[in-house]
Simulated scan of single mutants.
Amino acid sequence: MSTDYGQLRRKAQDEVNTELADIEDPFEKRAAAEEIRDQAYMELSMLKQERQQLIASAALYEYTPQLHERFGIQRHQMKRLTMDVLYGLEGRESWHYPPMWPADRVAAAREAGVAHPDNVVGKAEEIATRYEYAEARRDAAVAHLGAAREAVRLAGGRVKVPAPERPDFEDVRQRARDQLLEQFAKLVTTPEKQLQLAAEAVDRAEEEAAELLVERDAAMNTLAFYTTARGVYFSAGISRSGMTRAQQRALGLPRDAAVPPRPELPAAGRAAGVKFVEDAAEKLPKVAAEYEAVEAQRLTAIEIRDAAVRVLHAAPYGWTPTQLAEAIGRDRKIVNRIVNPDEMY
């Protein structure tokens, strides 16, 4: 049975919250939180290299489509770790996403001198569990550090900020879509290469969008909870209901729960540990525009990828769903939905 990483992270977070709950003085709480954070950083530093080596070994010698779940990470993260072990990609500014998996993983691993310990998947999962636990403790401690600073800064009220800009998001999305279509239109290549490039574009956009979404919501929630800004969702490129859902997530509320009225939001945000982002009024429009551009390119790349999948599935190529799933790094069910959209899966 695989480790429940969500439960593991919640346990680590609860432990940190319990350790700091009875400390009321912000200076004492800051010192205690810094100690927990530093201990976690030390643990992460000690585990980092061994974790990467074991995960890479497991991915190369004993790969399965859902292997990344055993280590509490996404598929593209496992690929990054593995490709760095094979090709030394870490720290390079010239690449944006790892190359495709080698045609023969085992041969590539042996050529690179990657060891294959007994029970490598189990050992990788064990060290990944320790790593995720330390990372969750670090993140929980950092959240407490931020909350202590915010409580002093806000003093129970709202910070006055200038009205944030409202980008033309439709224009942002269209320009991003056109840019990617233009890039692929210039390519003179085989269907196989088209599929590879499109799949990499989807993966890259997913990774970038996930990171930008966190930044966007953090800036948006700062403005909504702690500042004088109004109509913040216009600057985020979403609807009022979308902002409400983001606030519910930040406060740990279910979808059907009411968000506290505006006068109560500062206190509710602090109680829930919602972080205060510096320069949020300037940051939100920029990050939101970046997110919408990347999301538009993600959807466009999916269209290109799916078209290439259908071409390679049909004659004269005749690729099987299993081959296509391996090529795009996705579950076979996704390929089945692409090539047989009218069937139920």
Rank of each mutant, 00 (worst) to 15 (best):
R173D: 05
Y133N: 13
A115T: 15
E111H: 02
R138A: 12
L154C: 04
K123Y: 02
V161K: 12
R138N: 02
A147F: 06
V152W: 15
A140Q: 12
R153M: 09
R153S: 08
Y131N: 06
E111K: 11
E170M: 13
E111I: 03
A124K: 10
R149T: 13
L145M: 10
V142E: 12
A108S: 06
P162W: 00
R137W: 08
A141H: 12
A128Q: 00
V114G: 01
R173H: 06
G157F: 10
V142L: 12
G113I: 05
A151M: 06
A140R: 05
P164V: 00
E165Y: 10
A124V: 02
V152S: 14
V159S: 14
D168S: 05
A155H: 13
E165S: 07
R166L: 06
A148I: 07
E125H: 00
V161S: 07
A115Y: 10
A112H: 03
A109Y: 00
G146C: 04
P162H: 00
E132N: 10
A141M: 11
F169P: 05
K123P: 04
V152Y: 13
A128K: 00
A109K: 01
R166N: 04
R130C: 11
A136M: 08
I127V: 06
H116P: 08
E170S: 12
I127E: 01
R138S: 10
V142P: 05
V159T: 14
A140M: 08
V152K: 10
D168Y: 04
T129A: 13
P162A: 08
A163E: 13
V142K: 11
